[in-house]
Nucleic acid binder design. Structure first.
Length: 481
RNA sequence: GGCCCCUUGGUCAAGAGGUCAAGACAUCACCCUUUCACGGUGAAAUCGUGGGUUCGAUUCCCGCAGGGGUCACCA
């Protein structure tokens, strides 16, 4: 049975790269009828962030990555939070101490620092030479110590990675890393191995930053007599050619994109395609399609650059297909923020906006005309907007038909778009103008904006007759003066 | 710096010795259209570099360059 895991450290937000790692682990497990597990790696007590675990849990839920075992849902291999598993690690550390695969180290941070200053790139194994008696005495004296992994000083290790192939690393390039810190907590290097084994993880899917240290973990698996998992290392998602997506630059949080008005699945769909492809040309894929198509041989060896523009495009596809009511409620927070004083039919506004926004926050710009017109200025907008080179219109033309426009609006059956347009067409005919000329002038007079989410008739319906007429009258006053 | 990894248009990418080197986003043009958007058609744009191997290299090998990763009592 395939078992994969997502093992984030709780930093207070879910990184887009982390989400993609989680997604691949999830898809791989689901594709093979296996289990997807969430484990929290919080062994660094200095980095604790309050509420951070909930942030991750909620984000995974929104993204649709439902885990089978983990905090909150339980499972047979709990607890799933490493800080609650302290004793477990200690037990195996002792076993390693006995077999000689690990040793106690009393070197102070100062000595370690001095070593590095004098050019050393790794720990010199000094404490490995300590006698059993001396170790015992110093522990008894209460001297702080750590437990280090005893890595062979010669030889090399080769292992297979599913995306990078065979990776060989010389032992001399590996340090005797710390397994148990002086506070008794394990380091990632240790906890990760113990937990992956105890939790039955069969496929270890994680970032490339662990590619080089994997031989160390393999040594641990071997020393403990455990079977190594299959490794799948993933290249990072980049902001540009030389920088990773980072929290610091504000372009890395899943929640940030949600707040910008991206739909959760659009984000998931997009990042699925960043570093993986299904070998056919489909790009808009549901979770079940992703599950069905996912395969590690579609994984990319090189890193890829995050392109928000393309994600916007994908998002627009999803926005167009959601139900009108769903769009409306998703748009609500943006109306509250940007259209609070607009006094228009918001449901109708949603109907007009849904096919025209790529992400929900586009609502701000798309509704600019609702805010700009009524700002109390003498001229409600720049009348040069009446000028249209294709239709050959200008303010003078506007002036010549503004009375009729007002009249049509006053008599309009506002909800009946066709009748309003018919009246406008009749006006064009009467004045020997082209349809477009009248319609352009009418829409501009009504909205004062070069681009609006709909034509003149739609705008009248949106504003309501009273407001539409008031606007036209205001324009007439200025046109006449 | 040592070690490990990566390198196809602006971006995501297919391609695995012989292709006019797919497709998508973005860009531009045209069409549709009362604006914007949608949609349609089309254009421009790519194999980092130098050597090999081969009848033939984007594809295989070596070097170089560029980029990334890693060398913590962080994960």
């Amino acid at each position: 049975m395939v078992r994969t895991r997502f093992a984030p450290s709780p930093t207070g937000y879910l990184h887009i790269g982390g989400l993609r790692t989680a997604l691949y682990a999830y898809l791989f497990a689901k594709k093979h009828g296996g289990k997807f597990i969430l484990r929290i790696e919080d062994t660094d007590q200095n980095r604790e962030v309050a509420g951070a675990v909930d942030v991750i849990i909620q984000a995974l839920d929104k993204a649709g990555l439902h885990y089978d075992e983990g905090p909150g849902v339980g499972g047979d291999c709990g607890p799933y939070i490493q800080s609650q598993r302290k004793d477990i690690y200690l037990k195996y550390a002792r076993q390693l101490l006995e077999s000689g695969d690990a040793y106690c180290c009393f070197c102070t941070k100062e000595r370690l620092e001095d070593m590095h200053k004098s050019g050393a790139t790794k720990y010199d194994k000094r404490c490995l030479a300590l006698s059993a008696q001396e170790v015992q005495d110093r522990i008894a004296r209460g001297e702080p110590y750590v437990i280090r992994q005893n890595i062979p000083s010669v030889g090399s290790s080769t292992y297979h990675d599913e995306v990078f192939g065979d990776i060989t690393v010389d032992y001399k390039d590996l340090e005797d890393n710390i397994l148990i810190k002086s506070d008794g907590m394990p380091t990632y290097n240790f906890a990760n191995v113990i937990d992956d084994h105890l939790m039955g993880i069969t496929h270890c899917i994680r970032g490339v930053e662990y590619l080089m240290s994997t031989p160390k973990y393999n040594l641990l698996y071997d020393a403990l007599g455990w079977e190594r998992p299959v490794y799948v290392h993933l290249q990072p998602i980049m902001r540009d050619a030389t920088h990773k997506l980072s929290k610091r630059d504000g372009d890395a949080g899943f929640e940030d994109f949600l707040n910008k008005g991206f739909l959760p699945h659009a984000i998931v769909n997009y990042i699925a395609l960043l570093g993986w492809n299904p070998k056919d040309n489909r790009e808009k894929l549901s979770m079940s399609e992703l599950t069905e198509l996912f395969s590690i041989d579609g994984l990319q060896k090189s890193s890829s650059i995050f392109d928000e523009t393309k994600m916007r495009w994908l998002n627009s596809l999803y926005i167009k297909e959601i139900a009108a009511a769903e769009f409306h409620s998703a748009a609500m927070p943006f109306y509250e923020k940007y259209c609070a004083d607009a006094n228009v039919d918001l449901e109708y506004l949603s109907e007009l906006l849904q096919p025209r926004v790529e992400i929900l926050s586009d609502i701000k710009d798309k509704t600019e005309f609702l805010r700009a017109f009524d700002d109390g200025a003498q001229t409600p907008f720049d009348f040069s907007l009446f000028e249209n080179k294709k239709w050959k219109t200008d303010a003078a033309l506007a002036k010549s038909i503004i009375d009729e426009c007002i009249e049509i609006t006053e008599n309009a059956e506002v909800d009946d778009l066709e009748s309003v347009n018919a009246a406008l067409n009749a006006l064009a005919e009467k004045k020997s103008l082209k349809k477009g000329q009248v319609l352009w002038v009418y829409r501009i007079a009504l909205t004062g904006a070069a681009a609006t989410p709909g034509g003149g008739a739609e705008m009248v319906k949106l504003f309501g007759k009273e407001k539409a007429v008031a606007r036209l009258r205001k324009v007439k006053t200025i046109l006449d003066s």
